[in-house]
Design a protein around this nucleic acid. Sequence first.
DNA 1: CCTTGACCTAAACTAGCTTCAGGCCGGTAT
DNA 2: ATACCGGCCTGAAGCTAGTTTAGGTCAAGG
Lengths: 120, 120
Amino acid sequence: MKISEVAERSGLSISTIRYYEKSGLCPEVRRGTDGQRRFSATEAEWFSLLASLRATGMSLSDMRAFANLYASGHETVPQRKAALLAHRENLDGRQAELDRCRVILDRKLQTYDEVLENRK
Amino acid sequence: MKISEVAERSGLSISTIRYYEKSGLCPEVRRGTDGQRRFSATEAEWFSLLASLRATGMSLSDMRAFANLYASGHETVPQRKAALLAHRENLDGRQAELDRCRVILDRKLQTYDEVLENRK
DNA sequence: CCTTGACCTAAACTAGCTTCAGGCCGGTAT
DNA sequence: ATACCGGCCTGAAGCTAGTTTAGGTCAAGG
């Protein structure tokens, strides 16, 4: 699979995929005779997972740690699970904060409505 | 009010507040005889609003546009309302995407559980 | 044969901060 | 008086997570 397809499937941009590889978020990708990257289905899925982690606010260095666990084989599954659980708690926190901010914005919108009502 | 109190109330860091002022996200702040910034309660609240906008993903340049409307007086209330409404729709989208990612992470956690179950 | 399009690299640029180096001011302890 | 301290000031450099740019290779199609 070529890089463009991985980009399409994962939602990452082509440059981000190259950047992630260079940053050590995956083992070096094999190349075809033309020098272009050829991804396996498994590698493509890995990038999709990275996309979800990143979208939910995991830092590149935490992602690198996760990738290293992944690269070290099956015995690291418990650590990976722990990392993901911790990350999900984080996500909970950020979602709650977004909700709090949303309430503030809604209140602001309401005061705008009142202002407009009074000046009518 | 001093900058540290504004920081505490808004949740922004002191350097972020200075950076925001320099970036034109508020009119220049008055100074005391000692050369330090003195904020009014209204200015402090403005920074809290900026914090909510930023936390929900508004870019600095959109915030600048919003600040300029604010600085141009009452007749811009309709535009400000429109801007906030648009931003809230954005927020809806991002919250939905976070939920989608959360499902993906939960599925991954589940496969980890299955792996651990089978190896037990 | 020549152009087009997808890929390649290294390096510069960007947003949004944070950190650093060096300095001033006002208050307290010596 | 003076020495020191915390909190503030500035401008500049550093950082993260990418994106953009400049310059190049290769295979396919007209």
